[in-house]
Design a protein around this nucleic acid. Structure first.
Lengths: 254, 254
DNA sequence: CAAAAAGATGCAAGTTAATGCAAATAATAC
DNA sequence: GTATTATTTGCATTAACTTGCATCTTTTTG
């Protein structure tokens, strides 16, 4: 096995699990732990992973804290909007999930488009309060701080009584084999119930969220209808997504 | 489990609950309390949490008072807060309704008081998101823009499943004979359902809202337990309220 | 093609880090 | 005040890491 090849496999394993130990890697790749450690150190230097005692963790380019992101919006995410906006038609009922990309969508809905927007995120409700033509439905429930959204049984029961034309969500982690995933069980339950009620589910987000997994699967990949991402997407990831019959829109990187 | 991983989990737990004890962590992460304490001390050194005897609290370096960053348009309404705050006890479930006075209450809840706060107003939800000890329940439903709150059947159904220790509302219009009123039918329905579930209903607001009526009665006057208003209240209004067995707190006019 | 150079790998030895236990000390509750 | 709980400290054990070196492979070069 070539070194570069092994590095590739290490990064793949890491994306899949979010973490990896030196011992596990040595076993699965059939080389000595010393070699693995040298690999991990090298990849760590290159900022391709986060080297820690005992193994490595995935690099966390995005700040884990929602409130940090709240104050420093990243306008580059606006580029995902245009394809999303073309899907909208007057009179539709859509879901706009929580998250930065989704907030941009809420903030940039055309003023003359009458829609019913359903969301569990109070920030998005607020963004839409001034909109003249949009009826807003807030999904109730327990507020889940890390995701800035409502979760729990009440939320799911309320969702079950509405049908959606389109659901827009951020890509938290999407993998052709392991599906659409998030980090929290409670969040996964609500998102699953949401997608269940939708004619069409659209994921929007940067390419580095693709080919990743997190702890809880929301739905298998084939339940997603459309992915909007940017040019950085790898060719193999692109084909694996399209093979599933998922529509793929790639927007330029500015 | 990797050390770095454990650190991440600790921070996650902390963000989730606002507080965490060493004992709880040791149990949930299956390591000794010594290890947890070393972790907490290390994370405290890195300013990632606030280490205290017995566990840790979330860092609040960016906003020492989580409510200070909010705009304070009419500070005169703050004077109603003090009597309201004295009614609160740890562990209670309270409703904070929409409205400016109520928002002040939400923004000025003491940081060390664990409560469950139920509200239909997304602004209040947001005000409370950074509070370390408060669990927030959002009442779902159709957003009713004039009152900045959720209304409708879903909202009422959700309210029916919760019991409240205290409900805090602004005085929209209160009259000893005609009861507690508002201008919109949909709002009245929700507020009625809210009061129905409460042990105690407290109205807060300036004296000129007393002895007034509006189109829709929420409840008759005797259903209200406590009114907090200011010195301007007329003597006859005062006695008519007290005759109904309603507790009356009059705060100075600054 | 052969020899040299560079790189990759595994092993051994020594070093550092992480963890749990026990005893002593500090903080909190009653 | 005392009792209880949390914390700190030192120590022993284990796991992870680093370093140097020998071996093997690949690449370079004449």
């Amino acid at each position: 096995m070539l070194l570069a090849e092994r590095h590739q496999l290490i990064l793949e394993q890491l994306n899949l699990h979010g973490r990896i130990t030196s011992v596990e890697l040595a076993k699965s790749l059939a080389v000595s732990e010393d070699t693995i450690r040298r690999d991990l150190n090298k990849l760590g230097e290159l900022k391709l992973l986060h080297r820690v005692h005992g193994g490595a963790l995935v690099m966390q380019e995005d700040s884990p804290d929602y409130f940090d992101r709240l104050n420093t919006p990243d306008p580059s995410k606006k580029r995902f909007l245009e394809p999303a906006l073309t899907m909208l038609e007057a009179g539709q009922t859509i879901v706009i999930d929580s998250g930065e990309t989704c907030r941009y969508l809420a903030q940039n809905l055309p003023a003359n488009l009458p829609l019913t927007v359903v969301t569990g995120c109070p920030l998005i409700v607020q963004d839409l309060m001034q909109h003249p033509q949009i009826q807003v439905i807030q999904i109730g429930g327990k507020m889940f701080k890390p995701a800035m959204r409502t979760v729990g049984h009440s939320a799911i029961e309320m969702l079950k009584q509405i049908r959606f034309d389109i659901v827009f969500m951020g890509i938290c982690a999407f993998h052709a084999k392991h599906g659409f995933c998030v980090n929290y069980l409670e969040e996964a339950e609500v998102l699953r119930a949401t997608i269940e009620q939708a004619d069409r589910t659209v994921l929007m987000g940067p390419h580095d969220k693709l080919d990743k997994t997190k702890t809880y699967q929301i739905v298998p990949a084939h339940k997603i209808n459309h992915v909007i991402t940017d040019e950085g997407i790898r060719q193999d990831v692109q084909t694996s997504i399209q093979k599933l019959g998922i529509e793929l829109t790639i927007v330029p990187n500015n």
